[in-house]
Amino acid sequence: MPELPEVETTRRGIAPHLEGRSVAGVTVRQPKLRWPVPDHLAQTLCGQQIRTVARRAKYLLIECETGTLIIHLGMSGSLRLIDGALPAAKHDHVDIQLDNGCALRLTDPRRFGSVLWQREEDEEHPLLQQLGPEPFDTIFNGKRLYQMSRGKRQAVKLFIMDNRTVVGVGNIYANEALFQAGIDPRRAAGRISQARYHLLAEKIQQILRRAIEQGGTTLKDFVGGDGKPGYFQQQLHVYGRGGEECDQCGSMLQQVVLGQRATVFCPECQR
């Protein structure tokens, strides 16, 4: 699944080509995504100028003159800038044609992505209302993690993957951040000290920044807005390496399931 670094990589790739351009047309080949593509999307978007391309958590927000297009890439989706005349393939579900002949194309084999519209005068979309801070916001720090975790018995990995705690810490990056902070992912969130949470917050930020710089992590389906894969996979210490040697101490990495997600850790380095 594209996580925050992959979505931010996509945003950075497409933003310079979209901002300031006008929408010349919209083609919806498959409206049945995770939520139905609005019937009025083509009529609403045509002729509008794109002001900015932003991101909130894993949602891309394409701000236009009368509202915002909200795009989620789901499990395997990708956005690419293409020549508008390029024929569509089987899983190319939505095209946003631009006034320069290019198009923004959503490809989504599993159809768990979404393309929604939020009018400018409406309140914040329900999908965005309950989200916690971005990992790079000033309010996200070890003190916040410590305060929010008091009394919680859930595993710390699940705690930091909760979008109400902080957005964008998906499975890959939660594994890696906990390894680098030396914290056992199974440990109860409420039994971790503030000092250790300070280190964990720093590692989350460092790892996400590095992943963005590397273009994200390509494990199966993801490519960025330029059609290129991400390279952070080459720097993974634990994710996907269960049963292999820890590259820090040489012990065998263990794999368990937490919240139905594969969790890999070093029993010696993480306590």
Results as ranks from 00 to 15, higher is better:
Arg56Thr: 08
Thr68Gly: 06
Ala262Ile: 06
Phe140Ser: 05
Gln205Asp: 02
Val166Pro: 14
Asp122Val: 03
Ala177Lys: 08
Glu123Leu: 14
Ser22Thr: 12
Arg261Thr: 13
Leu45Gln: 08
Ser22Asp: 08
His237Val: 02
Arg55Cys: 13
Glu65Val: 08
Gln234Asn: 12
Val223Gly: 01
Lys90Glu: 08
Asp92Lys: 03
Val238Tyr: 07
Gly230Lys: 01
Glu123Ser: 09
Arg196Val: 06
Ser251Ile: 00
Glu19Arg: 04
Gly190Leu: 11
Glu134Phe: 07
Arg51Val: 01
Phe265Asp: 01
Arg271Thr: 10
Gln154Leu: 15
Leu106Gln: 14
Ala57Pro: 07
Leu236Thr: 02
Leu131Lys: 04
Ala155Phe: 11
Glu213Cys: 05
Gly170Asn: 05
Val167Trp: 09
Leu69Trp: 15
Leu45Trp: 14
Arg196Phe: 07
Glu268Leu: 15
Ser76Asn: 13
Gln254Ile: 09
Ile139Ser: 15
Thr52Gly: 13
Gly77Lys: 08
Glu245Pro: 08
Met252Leu: 13
Gly182Phe: 12
Gly224Asp: 04
Lys32Met: 12
Arg55Gly: 08
Glu245Asn: 12
Thr10Glu: 07
Arg196Pro: 00
Leu18Cys: 06
Leu116Gln: 15
Leu208Asp: 07
Gly170Phe: 05
Leu73Gln: 07
Arg29Met: 13
Leu219Lys: 10
His237Trp: 05
Glu8Asn: 10
Met161Lys: 12
Ile192Phe: 13
Gly13Lys: 06
Asp247His: 12
Phe179Cys: 03
Thr10Phe: 08
Pro267Met: 11
Glu123Ile: 03
Arg110Trp: 14
Pro126Met: 11
Val167Leu: 10
Gly113Lys: 09
Arg111His: 15
Glu244Pro: 04
Val167Met: 08
Asp137Tyr: 09
Arg144Glu: 05
Leu128Gln: 08
Thr218Val: 01
His17Met: 06
Val28Phe: 06
Leu33Thr: 14
Ala262Phe: 06
Arg51Gly: 12
Ser78Glu: 06
His198Leu: 01
Ile82Met: 13
Gly216Gln: 04
Val223Ala: 10
Glu8Val: 12
Ala15Cys: 08
Cys246Ala: 07
Ile82Val: 11
Lys220Pro: 04
Gln194Tyr: 05
Glu6Gln: 04
Leu236Ile: 05
Gly84Arg: 07
Leu253Cys: 09
Arg29Cys: 13
Arg105His: 09
Cys266Gly: 03
Leu236Asn: 09
Glu8Gly: 12
Thr218Ser: 15
